[in-house]
C-alpha cells in the first residue's frame, strides 16, 4: 500500500457482457494515486459499467480488477467491505436513500463502516455538509432537494468516509452549467486538498478538462485512447477527437 509506484486501481484485460451484449472488451487501465481520470465515450459504451466494476458492484466475466494490491473480484464480503471503506461512489442520480433524511443518509455509512462515536459522527456530518454547502438542509428528505442539491448531497455521502478513491458517475448530468461548475469545484478542491484518486465518467468535456489529469476513451466496449487531454486532441481516431474537442 505504501508502495508509491503501485496503481490505485488497475483493470487488467477486463471483459464484461450482459446476456449477449458485450459491454467491455479486454480493457486494461491503470489509475495512479492522486490522479484524476475521466472516462469518456458515447452513451452505452460501458463507462458506468467500468466504474461499477471498480467497486465490485459488478463482477468481470474475465480479467482482474486491482484496488491497491487486492483483487476485488476474489474478495469475500469482509475483504470487500474493507476495500470499499476507502472508496466513495457518487451515482449519476445521487442515489440518496429516499426513506432517510439527508443527515441519516450521511450517518448510515459512518455507522456502518466506522467505529466513530456518535458525537464524532455528528461532527463529521456537519463538516462535510458544510463543505458541500448543505449544512442548513440536513433534516430534509431527498425528495425535498433540488437536482444540484441532490448531487452535492450524494457527493457529501461519498466523501463522508474520507475515501482515498472517489468514483463519480456523471457529476454534471441534468444540471445547469453553473451548478455543474460548482460540483467540479468541489471535486477539484477534494483532489487538491485530500489527494483523492478520482475516476470520473462524464460527457461534460469542459468540466472533465478542468478536473482530469488524463482521459480514457471507450468505444464499443474497448479502450481506444488513453492520455492527457491535450494529446488526445490530435488522436488518430475521429471519435476520440470529437469526444475530446471542447466544442
Amino acid at each position: 500500500m505504501s508502495d508509491e509506484k503501485q496503481a490505485a486501481i488497475a483493470l487488467d484485460h477486463v471483459s464484461k457482457s450482459f446476456g449477449t451484449k458485450q459491454v467491455l472488451r479486454d480493457v486494461s487501465l491503470e489509475i495512479e494515486r492522486g490522479e484524476a481520470v475521466c472516462i469518456l465515450g458515447r452513451s452505452g459504451t460501458g463507462k458506468s459499467v467500468a466504474l461499477k466494476l471498480m467497486i465490485s458492484l459488478l463482477k468481470p466475466d474475465s480479467g482482474y480488477i486491482w484496488v491497491g494490491d487486492e483483487d476485488i473480484a476474489q474478495l469475500n464480503a469482509e475483504g470487500l467491505s474493507r476495500v470499499r471503506r476507502r472508496m466513495g461512489f457518487l451515482f449519476q442520480s445521487a442515489a440518496l436513500f429516499d426513506s432517510l433524511t439527508l443527515h441519516d443518509n450521511l450517518a448510515l455509512p459512518l455507522h456502518r463502516l466506522t467505529d466513530k462515536s456518535r458525537p464524532e459522527i455528528e461532527e463529521t456530518i456537519e463538516r462535510v455538509l458544510g463543505e458541500v454547502g448543505l449544512a442548513a438542509d440536513k433534516g430534509k428528505m431527498p425528495v425535498e432537494l433540488s437536482g444540484g442539491m441532490k448531487k452535492r448531497a450524494g457527493l457529501a455521502r461519498a466523501l463522508v468516509l474520507a475515501p482515498e478513491i472517489l468514483l463519480i458517475d456523471e457529476p454534471s448530468s441534468g444540471l445547469d452549467a453553473i451548478t455543474a461548475e460548482e460540483i467540479d469545484d468541489l471535486l477539484l478542491r477534494q483532489k487538491s486538498q485530500q489527494k483523492t484518486t478520482m475516476v470520473i465518467v462524464t460527457h461534460d468535456v469542459r468540466g472533465a478538462r478542468r478536473v482530469a489529469d488524463r482521459f480514457a476513451v471507450l468505444d464499443q466496449g474497448s479502450l481506444i485512447a488513453l492520455g492527457k487531454p491535450a494529446d488526445l486532441e490530435h488522436h488518430e481516431s475521429e471519435i476520440v477527437r470529437k469526444l475530446v474537442a471542447e466544442h
Partner: peptide, 21 residues
C-alpha cells in the same frame, strides 16, 4: 414499487457500495 425504484435509481448499488448487504 419502493424496491424497484431503489433499483432503478441505483440506491441498491449505493447500499452495496457502502458494503451493506
Amino acid at each position: 414499487a419502493v424496491i424497484a425504484n431503489m433499483r432503478a435509481t441505483e440506491q441498491i448499488d449505493a447500499i452495496e457500495a457502502l458494503s451493506i448487504d
